[in-house]
C-alpha cells in the first residue's frame, strides 16, 4: 500500500480532474436539458422535430462512441477539440439528452388547472413557463437529476479512454508502473464512492429545500 501512497499527488490531480469534468459537463448537461426538454414541448413542429432527433441520437448511441467520435473523427472534419473539451462536450451532450426527458416529463406533470389559471389571468406563453410551470416542475425534477448526476460522475471514468488524466486514468498509470492492481483500483473506487455519496446527500438536501412547505405529487421523471 505504501507504494501507492507515493503516487498521492497524481491521485489528487486525478480526483480534481474528475470533479472538474463532472461539474463542467454537469453545467453543459443542465443547459441542454432545459433547452431540449422545453423545445420538445414547443408549438412549432420543426423545433419539436429537431429536439427529438437530438434526443434519439444521443440517447440511442453509446456515450463512449460519442466520445471517440468527438475526439478522433471531428478533427478529420476540421473541428479540433482538446481531449478535456471533447470529454466535457460528450458527457454533457449525452447526459443532457437524458436530462431533457426529465425536464419535459416534470413540466408536463404540472396540473392542467395551473395552465388554465395562467390563461385566465392572460399570461403570455413565456410568463406561463417562467412563473407557473417551471417553478412547480423543479421540485419534481430534483430526484431524477440526482440520479443523473451520479451517472454523470461514473460516465467521466470513460473519458480516461480518450487520454483525459482523470482518476481512472491515474489508477492505470499506477497499475502499469508498480504492477500493483488491487490497491490503486480499490483506492479510486473508494474515492468515487465518496464523491457519489456527497452528490447523493446534496440531492437529498436540495429535495428537502425545494419541497419545504409544498405539497408535490411524486410523478414524472425517471
Amino acid at each position: 500500500m505504501n507504494e501507492v501512497f507515493i503516487f498521492w499527488p497524481i491521485i489528487i490531480d486525478g480526483t480534481l480532474t474528475t470533479i472538474k469534468l463532472t461539474l463542467a459537463s454537469g453545467v453543459v448537461a443542465l443547459i441542454i436539458s432545459f433547452t431540449v426538454g422545453l423545445a420538445r414541448l414547443s408549438r412549432h413542429w420543426v423545433v419539436r422535430a429537431i429536439a427529438t432527433i437530438y434526443l434519439e441520437f444521443f440517447r440511442g448511441t453509446s456515450a463512449i462512441v460519442q466520445m471517440f467520435f468527438m475526439y478522433f473523427v471531428l478533427p478529420l472534419l476540421g473541428v479540433f477539440l482538446p481531449a478535456l473539451m471533447a470529454g466535457i462536450v460528450a458527457c454533457g451532450f449525452n447526459l443532457g439528452a437524458y436530462g431533457s426527458e426529465v425536464v419535459r416529463a416534470s413540466v408536463q406533470s404540472v396540473g392542467r388547472e395551473q395552465r388554465e389559471a395562467a390563461k385566465a389571468l392572460n399570461y403570455t406563453n413565456f410568463q406561463l413557463y417562467r412563473h407557473v410551470l417551471i417553478p412547480q416542475a423543479i421540485p419534481v425534477m430534483i430526484p431524477s437529476f440526482g440520479n443523473l448526476v451520479i451517472e454523470l460522475l461514473k460516465l467521466t471514468a470513460v473519458a480516461s479512454l480518450i487520454t483525459i488524466s482523470d482518476l481512472t486514468f491515474m489508477s492505470q498509470i499506477i497499475r502499469v508502473q508498480t504492477a500493483l492492481t488491487l490497491e490503486p483500483l480499490i483506492l479510486i473506487m473508494v474515492i468515487y464512492f465518496i464523491l457519489s455519496s456527497i452528490l447523493v446527500s446534496g440531492t437529498k438536501w436540495l429535495e428537502r429545500y425545494f419541497s419545504a412547505g409544498r405539497n408535490i405529487h411524486k410523478s414524472g421523471g425517471n
Binding site: I150, K154, L155, V158, T168, S171, Q172, R175, I188, M189
Partner: peptide, 21 residues
C-alpha cells in the same frame, strides 16, 4: 450502493486485472 456509485469501467478493470492475482 458501493457497486452502484462506482463506475462500471473501474469494476471491469477490477475483475480483469485484480482477480488473476
Amino acid at each position: 450502493e458501493f457497486i452502484r456509485r462506482t463506475p462500471l469501467l473501474v469494476q471491469l478493470y477490477f475483475l480483469f486485472y485484480v482477480l488473476p492475482d
